[in-house]
Amino acid sequence: MGRAERPVTTTEPTGAGSFEQEALPHLDAVYRFALRLTGSTSDAEDLVQETYLRAYRAWDQYTPGTRAKSWLFTICRNAYLRQRERDTRRDQLVARAAAQEDDSNVPHNETPVFAGRPHYDPEGDFYRSLVDERIFEAIDSLPPEFREVVVLSDLEDLSYQEMARVLDAPLGTVKSRLFRGRKLLQERLYHLAVEAGYIRERQP
């Protein structure tokens, strides 16, 4: 039911397909996504608020039966990008560097992350030594273009197709960014484990 057809009453339209039933259950997910995008709880709260207001106003454009979660992520990300444009240009350099790297002609199947790297933890047990806080620290340190794909995929379980829609990017770009983002994150997590003394790197 489109918004225009919705009767303006005080009764709660909470039936199947309503904004309440479809969109509100994703508040936690949208908040988490906003938190990773903005890096601050107060900015995340503002962003989620704006996202839900925009989503409510655009509810008649939502296709019932599609995943409301990724539809909300799209709105959230667009609102975030607009906000960021209005704000400072502090991310510009990072974004430019990432965009240069993110050439879809570059195959996303490169050498495995740890291939040839001498270390004492070939089984990857160091991952178990990392507390969540360190993991989020590493995620938040990624350039935005890589951070968002990693978050959408590895934290929020979106499919490649859903990510392509949220990011408004071709599937090939999504795959290549995801590959690079994961590789970057794995390297950073590895270094955190080294710093924490969990892995001792072999002396050259």
Binding site: D28, Y31, R32, V48, Y127, I135, D154, L155, Q186
Partner: peptide
């Protein structure tokens, strides 16, 4: 080895994902 590392990576992120905060009640 690569499969094992990748699996551990995914497990670590899945675990972290579960520890994320919920939307604050006030919001």
């Amino acid at each position: 080895p690569e499969v094992r590392l990748t699996t551990e990576y995914r497990e670590a992120l899945r675990r972290a994902a579960q520890g994320q905060p919920c939307c604050p009640e006030g919001l």
